[in-house]
């Protein structure tokens, strides 16, 4: 009996010390890794994105962009953004090889000259197509791009419970000092992100909604709304036509294949 008690006590003690050993930083990183693993194995994805820019006066302008993404094991994903509108940039295509902490490789295809230009990715904090989304907001979110700190767990609408994690960009040239991310505990769906600028003022808030599950596993939102608190401008992304596993290969994400458009 005594031995049993000792073993039980030791076990409980061990468990407590294991639980105690996980710092909030470790917990934040664990959540990020779990979210990353949750999305593994999608192979490739194509989708249509409608981007609606709204200025403070409520005037809107629209961009239509097709996105293709190829999952790369052991490195960041490869992606292609194909612009269909505004009409003057129709055919313009951007090819990005995302990396962890290393700078991304990026090529731009300009259809009028049929010219492929390698561009520098220093401009991470710059606006994407004049929108409230910066290039860094739309890039592949690799785990090693941030350091993490778990803040708390709280309800976050539609009966979901969210992990609230603060993350700080570990890569160079970010426009942010930190981000606070709400993602649901069950499926790691990103619900909300607050972006803080370099002076630590709350700059933007991203809210994603209308999540649906595809091919029985992968969750994707229908709408992403980015509100800029400083300028009053906002940008809404409406996603449609999500298609997983189209059989795309690295040959479809080559700077040569940019000219197929």
């Amino acid at each position: 009996m005594k031995i049993k008690k000792i073993i039980l006590a030791t076990c409980l003690g061990l468990m407590a010390s294991v639980a105690h050993a996980e710092t909030s930083q470790e917990k934040g990183l664990r959540i990020a890794k779990e979210a990353d693993a949750r999305d593994n194995g999608f192979k490739d994805l194509t989708a249509d994105m409608k981007m609606i820019l709204k200025n403070r006066a409520g005037k809107t302008s629209t961009r239509n962009i097709r996105i293709k993404t190829l999952e790369v094991n052991g490195d960041g994903d490869k992606s292609m953004s194909l612009f269909d509108s505004p009409a003057d940039v129709k055919g313009t295509t951007m090819l990005t090889y995302t990396h962890g902490l290393k700078a991304d490789d990026q090529w731009l295809y300009l259809p009028a000259l049929r010219r492929v230009k390698r561009i520098n990715s220093r401009n991470k904090s710059g606006p994407f197509m004049g929108s409230e989304f910066a290039f860094e907001d739309l890039g592949s979110q690799e785990v090693e791009k941030y350091t993490y700190n778990f803040l708390r767990e709280e309800p976050c609408g539609s009966g979901w419970t969210c992990n609230v994690v603060e993350r700080k960009p570990a890569y160079q040239y970010s426009g942010y000092s930190r981000q606070v991310v709400w993602s649901d505990t069950k499926e790691h769906r990103l619900v909300k992100v607050d972006f803080y600028d370099r002076k630590n003022a709350k700059l933007k808030t991203l809210v994603s909604s209308g999540y649906k599950q595809y091919i029985g596993h992968y969750w994707r939102p229908a709408t992403m709304n980015m509100q800029n608190h400083l300028t009053g401008k906002s940008t809404t992304l409406t996603w449609s036509n999500y298609k997983f596993r189209n059989g795309l290969t690295s040959r479809d994400f080559n700077k040569n294949s940019l000219q197929r458009r």
Binding site: R118, R251, N256, S257
Partner: peptide
């Protein structure tokens, strides 16, 4: 017209090509 299959790409017709930096 352009046809890409695996590692190969074929193009025939009137077109424009840009080389340079």
């Amino acid at each position: 017209t352009t046809i890409a299959t695996g590692d190969w790409e074929y193009q025939a017709g009137i077109s424009k090509v840009f080389w340079g930096v």
